[in-house]
Design a protein around this nucleic acid. Structure first.
Lengths: 202, 202, 202, 202
DNA sequence: TGCTAAGCGAGACGGTACGTCGCGTCTTTAC
DNA sequence: GTAAAGACGCGACGTACCGTCTCGCTTAGCA
């Protein structure tokens, strides 16, 4: 009563309740049992949903995780634009490190990035839907710095983004070492020393 | 035919022929069908080996791939020490990019790095056996530069390595973009500009 | 076009068009793909009818087939009463054999008889609606023969019917052998020799 | 311990324990829940056997039931040859009626005969493996009667068998009526009156 | 010069999850 | 108030691999 009303599937299309239960179940299973513990049968059982309902809407379990990721990156990882360039970049890399190493959606992203090494199609979707927009958000902050003269006009934005975030992803995905603020701050400092104006606050 | 001759079991220990056939079959399956196509049954069938023989010597299929990787990293990715720091670093990053994106062992490494996101135990082994030694090889070249005065004495070597190779791994594992020499060269230039001596040849 | 006109639901009661389409679709599917090919979904799709419409009017797919059978038995298998007893019985058993082995409704009856072995409720309905009336039609002809003195007064009619038609059903349902006129004629001859008057035409 | 020794599958071939457990489980499920309750999953669960083990050795569940039937017909339904023809036939038809209506293997046979109406391949196998040999056993008794002069030399044996057993199967499979000794005895009497010698003892 | 014991190819076993099919129920919109 | 449409929870299907096991063969080293 009131609202879109609960239903069990009809000609309007899919059940929103089922959709949300699936996404949440997938997320829960990933955090509780890891990627290998995410099975379509397990999701169906935990979500109280029929397997066929899952297959009707998602081609595979990674598509579920992709959808579960949703707009988490945009929400958590849009660089601030309120302070000096150095301040904003330090804040962003700290947030990125925290997101990747500690948050639930960060765990989803890591699992998908891992699976993408085995699955080129997933890799393409992951990049198109999540990573490219995220890189554009990061590039945008640098672009403004270029416009304001804080960074040189001939800066190659994509490469600049890679120099900043690359080492963070590398530590998280490859070496597994912690990514403390000191590390990310030093990254920003080095970046600004290499390209930046002298005036790098701090 | 010369050599230890093929045999079907004896009391002298394991069959070297079987071991090699397994490693090669695993490698072949990975390049031909991708990680999902690497199954113990498939390896056994292609190698002409019994499943039990595989389980006798390797706990899982990723252990096979780890062993197949062998010393490929040390062979292909030991930084040169024959030129200027800039020259050696540029050469190394180019080699790293080529190894990761084009070589067969690079494909194995990427698959293992992907699987490591789902399997902490594999992650630990991969780091201990392959990645840590590799990072040490890279740190060694920088250490010599510190000793020769080309880099500042207070340089944090692990962080420095991350700044150099991190963006390369990031492109390969995450964004999937190509890693041309221009990119790696610019990486070296930025690194030297941030930390380096004035003498960064070229 | 003339007639009650096709409609998609109204308040005038059920759609005769839908009913007929369902019966015909079920019959077609049975003859084309066999009993396993008769599914509610398949009937609905072929009849251009919603599944719910089927479930509204028939409890299960066997009820559809039962209704499809309709009065086919009465039409095809009412024993004649125009000749001598021997003539009428021979004609009837020949017609029975032909109906069971060659006709479409005969195929439906065989499928239902088969399914009835797994489904006591169907068995009961099949007997009540189709088989008992059919046996009564056959008994009726014998009863007249008793009344006319062609058969002994103490004849047990049900058993007599079984002796005549039992071997025919047995061949059709169990042994699968052909049921030629010679077989049914011999059946009648034996029956009349066992119970009958001497005067058995031929 | 002595005997063929328990094993879990090896190069000798299949596990006899698994085979027997499957046959028994199928039989139990049929008697307890009916044919629809006989599922491969259910058999596997009850037998403590993997589904794949079932599919490895039996193409379908009806093959399991066919094998479960085994030599039950030969054991229970071989006509006696110790008395007069009339005595032996009466005894046999009574046994047949009891077997079909009351015994477990009789239930299996009825289920298979029912399913055979939907499955021509099963029908062929059922006839070849069970029904034809059974008919031959019955024909054999009649053949001896012919040889001893109790039945006419020109008797068509298959037809004679059909006249005797056909009505019994018909009652069991089609009308569902009981098949009391009075019915089968009358059947024998009629048969002997139609074809037989005067000497129909009892 | 056999005996013996380890490694081997072979493959059946109990399991888990896969992706598909059909069931019978439901909810909605159109007529 | 019936009809078409179709999503839903459910159960079973038949398949692919998993990791374990038992077996008989092969082959060296020891008695």
């Amino acid at each position: 009563m009131g609202g879109p009303a609960r239903h069990h599937g009809n000609r309007h299309g899919r059940s929103e309740a089922a959709r949300e239960a699936v996404l949440e179940a997938a997320d829960d299973l990933l955090t509780e049992r890891g990627f290998a513990g995410v099975t379509v049968e397990g999701i169906a059982a935990r979500a109280g949903v029929a397997k066929q309902t899952i297959y009707r809407w998602w081609p595979s379990k990674v598509d579920i995780l992709l959808e579960a990721l949703g707009s988490d990156l945009a929400q958590h990882l849009t660089p601030a634009d309120g302070g000096t360039l150095a301040e904003d970049l330090r804040k962003h890399l700290r947030a990125l490190a925290r997101f990747l190493t500690r948050s639930d959606p960060g765990m989803v992203l890591r699992a998908l990035a891992g699976q993408a090494q085995h699955d080129p199609e997933l890799a393409a979707r992951l990049r198109a839907e999540q990573l490219a927009p995220q890189r554009e958000r990061e590039a945008a902050r640098l672009r403004r710095a270029v416009e304001s003269g804080d960074l040189p006009a001939d800066l190659d934005l994509p490469s600049a983004v890679d120099q900043l975030v690359g080492p963070v992803y590398y530590r998280v995905l490859v070496t597994g070492e912690p990514v403390p603020p000191a590390f990310t701050d030093a990254l920003v400092d080095g970046f600004l020393r290499a390209h930046g104006s002298a005036a790098n606050g701090s």
